[in-house]
C-alpha cells in the first residue's frame, strides 16, 4: 500500500534521514521503533509532505506522492496523528473533530462519524463544548485519534500515541488502535518508543537508528530478538 524508497530528508543543511526504505501492506499494523532523535517523526512528516524528502520516492498504491502538498496527501487518505497530539487548543471538542473532516463535504456522513467516535469515547461527548486545550492528556490523545478517524483514513500514521500518558490509559489506547485496525480495515503505521507494547499489537516492525532502518522483521521475532531486547525493551 505504501512503499518508501531510499528517502533522504534534510532540515536546512542537517540530514535527518539518511536512507529510509520501508513497506506497509494493506490491513497491517506496522511499527517503527527507535530511540529519541532516530528520525521516526521525520519519517512520518516526510510521508505526509510536511517535510518533503529531498531524494527518494514514496509510492502510495503504486503512485508517487513525494511531490504532492500536505493537503493533497491528506486527500489520498493518509492521515497522521502527530506527536504531542496537536489539539487545536481554543477550539471545542466538536470543532476539533469537524476539522478532522475538513476535506469532506458529506454533512450527514460527518455527523454519523462524530456520533460513532462519541460511542467509542463517551468522555469526548461529555466534553463536546469544552476547549480542546483544557482536556487531560489522555482525553487529548483520544480526541487526536478521533479527529484523524473523521478523515476516514485508509492509512493511519500514529506518532508516539502513548507519550506522557498513565499506564492504564496507554493500555486503552493500544487496545483502540488494534480495534480500529480490525474493525474498519484501516492500515496502521505506528511510531513508538514504547517498543514492548507496540510490538505486541503490530504484525511487523522496523528498527530505526540515526536516520536509517537497521532491522526489519515480524513483530514476534523482534520481541524475542536479543539485540532489540537489550536496546529497546530494557531486558
Amino acid at each position: 500500500m505504501l512503499e518508501v524508497r531510499n528517502i533522504q530528508t534534510y532540515y536546512g543543511n542537517i540530514q535527518a534521514l539518511k536512507s529510509v526504505s520501508l513497506t506497509i501492506n494493506e490491513g497491517e499494523i506496522v511499527t517503527l521503533i527507535g530511540a529519541n532523535g532516530a528520525g521516526k517523526s521525520t519519517t512520518l512528516m516526510s510521508i505526509c509532505g510536511v517535510t518533503p524528502p529531498r531524494h527518494g520516492q514514496i509510492l502510495f498504491r503504486g503512485e508517487p506522492i513525494q511531490h504532492l502538498s500536505a493537503e493533497q496527501i491528506v486527500s489520498q487518505g493518509i492521515i497522521q496523528v502527530p506527536e504531542g497530539r496537536h489539539i487545536f487548543p481554543q477550539m471545542s471538542v466538536i470543532e476539533n473533530l469537524e476539522m478532522g473532516a475538513y476535506l469532506r463535504n458529506d454533512r450527514a456522513g460527518i455527523k454519523a462519524d462524530i456520533d460513532d467516535v462519541f460511542g467509542r469515547f463517551p468522555i469526548l461527548e461529555k466534553r463536546r463544548n469544552q476547549a480542546g486545550g483544557t482536556l487531560s492528556g489522555g482525553e487529548q490523545q483520544m480526541l487526536a485519534i478521533s479527529r484523524a478517524l473523521l478523515a476516514r483514513p485508509s492509512l493511519l500514521l500514529l506518532d508516539e500515541p502513548s507519550l506522557g500518558l498513565a499506564p492504564l490509559i496507554i493500555k486503552q489506547i493500544f487496545e483502540i488502535i488494534k480495534q480500529i485496525n480490525a474493525e474498519s480495515n484501516t492500515t496502521v503505521f505506528l511510531v513508538e518508543q514504547n517498543a514492548n507494547q507496540a510490538l505486541k499489537i503490530a504484525h511487523r516492525g522496523y528498527v530505526m537508528e540515526n536516520g536509517a532502518i537497521t532491522m526489519e522483521d515480524r513483530a514476534e521475532n523482534l520481541l524475542s530478538n536479543e539485540e532489540v531486547k537489550k536496546a529497546y525493551l530494557g531486558m
Binding site: C48, A70, I79, P82, H86, Q90, M99, Y102, L103, R147
Partner: peptide, 12 residues
C-alpha cells in the same frame, strides 16, 4: 492555533 496540524488535516 497550530499551523502544522492545520496542514495535517488538509488545510491549504
Amino acid at each position: 492555533q497550530d499551523m502544522v496540524m492545520a496542514r495535517l488535516v488538509g488545510i491549504n
